[in-house]
């Protein structure tokens, strides 16, 4: 078990954004987290990465209890992430962005830069290494966030709506990229709105609704689950004349 979250609850005051969620991810998995808006997916995701401390429950990563560890300590253990709204380092070049990630496993800036170049090439940003990160559009930024995360040589990569705001063609390219990353032996957790992405990528899916897990299984299983359909589309009302 690479990631094991048990009975995680995250409360903001009286409101439980995540309520007693238990999710585990095997090494080599691609796990999809889906659910309608406000379901608590992103909150749960941020509990896994350490951006939000849990109210109760525990999170372990690669056999270590990381419940109380800050995000940087989890990153050192091999947990990398991207952000829903890209947080690229805007004042830096594309190469420097990736170099920051690579410095986690490389001692000198020179070695880190070489690793960064390599990763940028792999994600398809090799032609813009010297451009400022702020010159990239949304797809470029999302790619750069993935490159930066990969440069830190993670065991698991957590993607928070990495496809949001992309055109259908860009989504297909991005899916291809995630497949390749997974092929390199990196475990993937992906939070996503777009069903197409989940169906074509994830081996297992966990569905959140109002902070609770309501279904889990293969993409096919959950998309035909009446509870999931209800959560997304609402209850079918039958009117009698």
């Amino acid at each position: 078990m690479l990631i094991d979250a048990r009975n995680v609850t995250k409360a903001f005051g009286a409101f439980r954004a995540v309520d007693d969620a238990s999710v585990s991810v095997e090494e080599g998995d691609i796990l999809g987290l889906i659910g309608p808006n406000g379901a608590g997916k992103s909150t749960f995701f941020n509990c896994l990465t350490g951006d939000l401390p849990v109210t109760s429950g525990s999170v372990s990563f690669a056999g270590a209890d990381v419940t109380r560890l800050p995000p940087e300590a989890r990153a050192k253990l091999g947990l990398a992430r991207t952000f829903q709204v890209p947080l690229t380092f805007e004042s830096m070049s594309v190469l420097d962005n990736a170099t920051i990630g690579a410095l986690l496993r490389h001692h000198t800036a020179r070695e880190a830069r070489a690793k960064a170049r390599d990763v940028l090439q792999r994600v398809g940003l090799g032609h813009v290494t010297d451009a400022p990160a702020r010159s990239l559009g949304t797809p470029g930024r999302k790619r750069l966030e993935i490159a930066r995360a990969l440069a830190s040589e993670p065991k698991a990569l957590l993607l928070d709506e990495a496809m949001a705001g992309l055109t259908p063609t860009e989504v297909r390219d991005a899916i291809e990229l995630v497949r390749r990353i997974h092929g390199d032996g990196i475990t993937i957790v992906i939070v996503e709105h777009i069903m197409e992405v989940i169906v074509s990528l994830a081996q297992r899916v966990v569905v959140f609704h109002q902070g609770r897990e309501i279904a889990r299984g293969t993409p096919r299983e959950v998309t035909s689950d009446p509870k999931v359909i209800e959560a997304y589309l609402g209850r079918r009302k039958v009117r009698h004349a």
Binding site: A75, E90, T99, L104, A112, A149
Partner: peptide, 26 residues
């Protein structure tokens, strides 16, 4: 500026949250 600390300081300035996600002890 040219070494690890320079990279990390600029990263913290641009986005501390992103820096921490990449293992920077901000």
């Amino acid at each position: 500026e040219r070494g690890r600390m320079g990279f990390y300081l600029r990263a913290i300035k641009d986005s501390e949250r992103a820096a921490r996600s990449l293992g920077v002890s901000s």
